[in-house]
Amino acid sequence: MSSVVLYTVLMLSALGVISAVVLYFVAQKFKVYEDPRIDEVEAVLPGANCGGCGYPGCRGFAEAFVKAEDISTLFCPVGGNDTMGNAAKILGKEAAAVDPMVAVVRCAGTPEHRAKTNAYDGAKSCRIATSLYSGDTGCQFGCLGLGDCVDVCNFDAIYIDEVTGLPVVDQDKCTACGACVKACPKFIIELRKKGPKGKRIFVSCVNKDKGGVAKKSCSVACIGCGKCVKTCPHDAITLENNLAYIDFNKCKLCRKCVEVCPTNAIWEVHFPARKPKVEDETAQPVSES
């Protein structure tokens, strides 16, 4: 009986050793040379594999990063400047600092501002709804609230507010990878400069209808009146197709446009509360959390 055990152990051990030797030689023979710095760079990357950099996963980015002559075009939005600095150090290069960005939802059409005109009853997907029709409200540009942006977010940084039916970005979690921007079939979400202490000003509307039509479908729509354009002292605002747009590279956060907007379509976030003077303070969002 004991001999059976002994032979079994011997046989299996011998098999193991032979396999190990074969594997070793095969591994040697088929070894592919890879720049060891790729591994090092990959190690400092966040490992989220979100694709926000434009490469398939962190490994793909690391390869491109090591091979690239000029690294200024490469940026990991998730890791930010710190990660890029560390990665550049591995190559003995210097990474230029980039302003941190954040995803911004440019629609404020809550049910009270934007009445429902029909009841969507298809599969819960903004893309499916978009391929079907313009949406369940009078505004054919606005947010559908079906959460395609939430589905694609790898960082749990965006959710649909149950009361407003609109997506809310958690700016602490948002890495500006841009997945939601690509997922939104209405092109509502935009990556904007995060701003000092999160302070930023933007037009929270993408409605390109003429003023009257826009206003009729949503009470907080941009009606393209152009008051903000005239008011802006920094030439940061442009008006195209009845829609104002604030260039975040030119905006100096003076907040003058916010005051003149007749429909409260321009939002300021993370500013200290103003002195109470106008009655429509309630229409302003408190913050984006």
């Binding site: 029909n118 009841a119 969507y120 009853d121 298809g122 391929s131 079907l132 029709y133 369940d136």
Partner: peptide, 8 residues
Amino acid sequence: KLLAVSPS
């Protein structure tokens, strides 16, 4: 009531 809209 609002009309329901769904794909076919």
